Amino acid sequence: MLRTVVGFGAFGLFWGAWGAILPAVRTESGVDDGELGIALLMIGLGALVSMRFTGYLIDRYGGIVLPIVVGLFGLSGVLPALANSAVTLSAALFLLGATSGATDVAINATGSHTEAESGRPLMNLAHGLFSIAVVVASLSTAGLRAAGVGALPVLGGVGVLIVALAAFVLAPGSKRSGFANSEPTAKRRLEPVLLVFGGLCALAYLVENAWQSWSAVHLDTSLHAAPGLASSAPAVFAAAAATGRIAGNALLTRLKPVHLLVSGALLAALGSLGAATAGNVWLALIGIAAAGLGTSVCAPTIIGMAGAWAGPAQRAGAISTVTTIAYLGFLLGPAAVGAASSVWSLPAALGGVAVLAVVVAVLAPVAGRIGERPKDV
């Protein structure tokens, strides 16, 4: 459990600091908004390149992969602060994305393995701790930025901390290495059932990132909220997500994963619809919080179900497949909302997000039936 918690915490610390320090990275690298947008796409491209291969490495070599990829992630996180052009920033973000994708697979595989070995729920708690780490790092970085601290000290400090955690907490040796079964696995193929888990998780991530990315804009443009109040929307969503994941982890001691998944998706649908159609800012914030509570438990629960289905010998490979497919939903969510809003309106587009949450709830029993039939290995 320690390795899972520390891994998710380290992951959240970086991405919380990154969101707050990005304006400084933009200024210090000398890029404009268009160049920054192109460079940021490299994060997703790098992640998609590395994720499935990381699953293979974990299934083949076991727990030693976790500290290696987390350490590389910490080192790569410093590179954007050293960039001085659009080209060097794009290259740095591609490496960051590749190590981030590898870390994402490794910590989720470790969490799923620990969950299966202990028989106790863990994935929602781990994802909740990630959300808490994001909030803490974001606020801390904002304070450092207010004091005039630049990108290199912030990202360098976070990088040193992550590398230290990888070396001294996540390092293999003793029972903490995990993945008792690290023998070579059979020839790999794309299992159709993983497409079900991956597609469902992609929809969940699409709902989640749509609200994380567009909630402030919705309050600002649709409801004409004051700038400070509008800017609080992502924090409200993140805090609700952290709360939902920790509570969801506790609920899994009494509920089947599929029941939590259906309940979370329906709450996300109600919250999304309420926020999209709200007539004032406060009702919208309540809806955003409900959407955060509901959608927060969906992706961790689906990933845990996929890992339980795959079994120990191919768990990491299965999770890498599911998270790679799911990551497409995470990347496409904000863009899909933007495209829909240009055709109709932003409230209508966010109302469509509620429909997708209903789809997750309707399809969840399919994943539940699959998850109850462990893979023969």
Rank of each mutant, 00 (worst) to 15 (best):
V160E: 04
F197A: 10
A268S: 15
E117R: 15
A235T: 15
F8C: 02
L251Q: 09
I288S: 05
G279R: 07
P67C: 08
A142C: 00
F237A: 01
L332P: 01
I132H: 06
G156C: 04
L75S: 05
S131R: 00
G199T: 04
G119V: 11
A137T: 11
F168P: 08
F237L: 13
P153S: 01
A306F: 06
L48H: 04
A238F: 14
A126P: 11
A109I: 07
P234I: 05
G16A: 07
F53T: 13
I288Y: 05
G338Y: 02
P347V: 10
A142Y: 01
R369A: 13
N124E: 07
T114N: 13
G62H: 07
L125K: 08
P121W: 01
V359R: 05
A238Q: 14
N84P: 00
S182Y: 06
V322Q: 03
D376A: 14
A235Q: 12
T243L: 15
H218A: 04
L2H: 12
A142F: 04
G274M: 15
A291N: 07
L293M: 12
A186W: 08
G63F: 04
L261N: 09
N280P: 00
G248M: 02
S215Q: 05
L41F: 14
V358E: 10
M1D: 10
T103W: 08
P192T: 13
L260I: 09
G178Q: 14
G311S: 10
L155M: 14
E191D: 15
A47I: 04
G7E: 09
M305N: 06
L190P: 02
L270N: 00
G352M: 11
H259I: 06
L165H: 02
P172G: 10
N280H: 09
P172K: 04
A348G: 13
T88H: 04
V49N: 03
V358M: 13
M51L: 14
G198S: 06
S174G: 15
L229R: 11
T27S: 14
L170D: 06
I43Q: 01
V70S: 03
L331P: 03
A348D: 11
P374N: 11
T88W: 01
G16R: 03
S215N: 06
E183F: 02
G338T: 02
L41N: 09
L285E: 03
A299M: 09
A291K: 01
G119A: 12
V359W: 00
L266S: 02
A133I: 03
A102V: 05
G274H: 07
G368S: 10
L229D: 01
F94T: 03
G368D: 10
G292R: 05
A284K: 00
G71C: 09
L48Q: 07
I370W: 04
T323Y: 05
A180F: 06
A241Q: 13
H218E: 09
G173A: 10
Y327T: 03
P227L: 04
G244N: 09
L161K: 04
F14I: 02
T103E: 04
S182C: 01
K175A: 15
E208H: 07
V353I: 15
L72M: 10
L96E: 01
L36Q: 10
I107P: 00
V358A: 12
A242C: 08
S232Q: 12
A276C: 10
A180E: 14
G264Q: 05
E28K: 08
A348P: 02
L251W: 11
T301S: 10
G368A: 10
A291E: 02
G34S: 11
L332E: 05
T185Y: 05
P227K: 07
N280M: 00
